[in-house]
Design a protein around this nucleic acid. Sequence first.
DNA 1: TTAAGTGCAAATATTTTGCTGTCAC
DNA 2: GTGACAGCAAAATATTTGCACTTAA
Lengths: 155, 155
Amino acid sequence: MPFPSTETPGRLQAELATRGVRMTRQRRAILEVIETADHHLDASQIQRWAQRIEPSVDRVTVYRTLSLLKRHGLVDELDLMHVGGEGHYYERVTGRNHLHVTCLNCGKVLEFETPHLDSIRREVECSCCFKVEVARLEIGGYCKECCGKQAQANG
Amino acid sequence: MPFPSTETPGRLQAELATRGVRMTRQRRAILEVIETADHHLDASQIQRWAQRIEPSVDRVTVYRTLSLLKRHGLVDELDLMHVGGEGHYYERVTGRNHLHVTCLNCGKVLEFETPHLDSIRREVECSCCFKVEVARLEIGGYCKECCGKQAQANG
DNA sequence: TTAAGTGCAAATATTTTGCTGTCAC
DNA sequence: GTGACAGCAAAATATTTGCACTTAA
């Protein structure tokens, strides 16, 4: 779903194969859901979609697979400012670093790319002597459509 | 705890008073803990410390007060990359925008200030026609001390 | 006085763990 | 064949809600 919205299908599966990770019907279903999703999904949504491909997929298997993918650096975990619950959302990691802008009113999520993000990454690596693995920038606020309504509601 | 580590005491209480929010013994205790904390605390740590000042402070009151403070934009909620559980950490909002750098191995948290963060904020406001309320940048990786150990463990 | 705030109990939501059986390689 | 993976049940963790009592203003 994220930046290059048309991702090579089967890429995640291939990636895991190279790393000697065993493939199962359940995992294949979960990977397919993550690759073809058109918006950010949480664990229970991933389960629901995966079950349409492979009905046996259990909640626990979803969590175990997500944890596997995180460990291998193949998916990122997002909060999206916790609009719509305390859970997490997941997206395929791509080369393109981007940030997530969430409307606190309507829940809409925009993705945004900027070279400043990489600058910060480099700054932290140099100034803090720190090996950066993940950089997650989430922004919350009000989108163009909701700004008017918000002003009304608070004013 | 956060950037200007010596914050004016009683500031949070005064801030709430101006906004016509009722003050109670329990809230005073919680506010004092947040203002004087020397590192990022989660809800249950806030409760434990607040109970030393006012033993009756309940878990629920902590959550309700945190939610109040968030609503008023007086504290920020952090994940710190979920090192050490799924809960959240809280810090007093100050004028100085900064980001949090968490070591995935030892859990150490560094705070870092950079003008790029404000640049991104402005970019999002202009390019996305978006009113930014919160910008949370969290970085995970390995600190100088843990880099060696990590290389060993994975290699 | 009274609306806002509190504690307690219980519900809800999310994620993890233990165990036993199954399947990919 | 065997070790990694699956499902199921249950635990652990984090946060929220309902309700009757209390208290700040």
